[in-house]
Computed example of a mutant assay.
Amino acid sequence: MSKPQEPHRPFFHFGNPFRAISPKGSKLSSRLVFLLATFEDSLAQKLTKLTPKSDNDVFSFLWMGLAMKLLCEIHNDVKTLIGDLELPVSDWGEKWLDEYLDISVKLLDICNDFSSDLSQLNQGHLILRCALHNLASTSSNQFVPARCSLDAWNQHISSRTSRVENRSPIMDHLEELLDLPKVKNSPKGKVLMQVMYGVKVATLFICSVFAYAFSGSSKRLLSIHVPDTYRWAQAFTELQKNVNMGIKINHSSGRFTALRVLDAVDERVKKLHSMIQENIDGGMKVEECQNLIVDLRSEAEKLTQGVDHLTKQVDEFFHVVLSGRDALLSNLRSSETVFGQGMEGLSTRQP
């Protein structure tokens, strides 16, 4: 971003926009260049904002919520740009339409999978609440049901399966759709396809990171190379490098899960379970146990708040994708109706 103390900086601060973004063999009007440059600069700023400041940020619910929020903004930006392009749906190539509708329905499926994984985490919190309720009593009789609840937590978490991992072909298919469809004799179409490439890269990358966070499987991780001709390429490369570094550290640390708060909760559950067993055997340190209960309650609350916030962000993204899909289908139906009426009127005037 340009700084106030740097006057006379050109508006397009990434260099000559015509050389940088005009597809080979095509001529874009100054208006189309401006629209494309504005979108790509905005995308670069969003990707920069998402770049984690430290390794601990990558799989925090705060970072994941920001990632989903920015994804909503990027998809809303696309809807705005499509309107600014004034490109009628009737001018969209059949391949463009098929690809857009295919991608949108798969993104809706992925949102449902993310929501299912988050719902499993909420179920685990209900088990924790039961254990903490029992532990709130000073009576030693409550330790046995509390231990049972902690056993139930361990069983629930260890048996947790990610729907994203089970539906991996969806992610594979989205990766295949990164290639740009060919566009001929349509400057607006070329701009649209270049914009859609940026959207697909950002969406696929964020979804792959979420899939890793929920499943713990590195099979869904991607390494996407973006040509430096795109104005947002450097910001994306930096984001991908920092996130991958966080993933590498997560693997080497031997954490139970990629989700940091969930890992913190699980660590305290195991310690508390061991202390309760000591109490039953007659050797627990009461004060140490009480401190751990307070600590677990705090981490469990963070887990609940994080899951609730991220669930809302995933729901919002679902509705953004759905509204964009519905708007396109509505415009397509309107175009077909107008075209049909025009042809009907033409036929009545035929001799």
Rank of each mutant, 00 (worst) to 15 (best):
E267T: 12
V269S: 01
S274G: 01
G254Q: 11
G306A: 04
P227R: 01
R260Q: 09
I293T: 08
R297P: 05
V265D: 06
E287H: 03
N250W: 12
F318M: 02
D281T: 09
I247L: 01
K271H: 09
F256P: 04
A233R: 02
G282T: 08
S298G: 02
D281Y: 04
M275G: 00
R255V: 15
S253D: 15
V307R: 05
Q277L: 10
K271Y: 08
M284L: 04
A264I: 08
L221G: 07
N250P: 02
A235N: 10
L296P: 02
G282Y: 10
S253P: 03
H309S: 13
V226F: 12
K285I: 09
N279W: 12
V294W: 01
A233V: 15
F236A: 07
I280V: 14
R268W: 05
E299K: 02
G283Q: 04
N242C: 05
A235Y: 13
D281K: 05
L303G: 01
Q305P: 00
Q313W: 07
T257C: 09
R297N: 13
G246I: 12
V314M: 04
K271L: 06
L310F: 10
A258S: 11
M245F: 11
W232F: 15
D308C: 00
H319S: 06
I247F: 08
A258W: 11
N279C: 11
S252E: 15
K312A: 13
M275S: 07
L259M: 13
D308S: 02
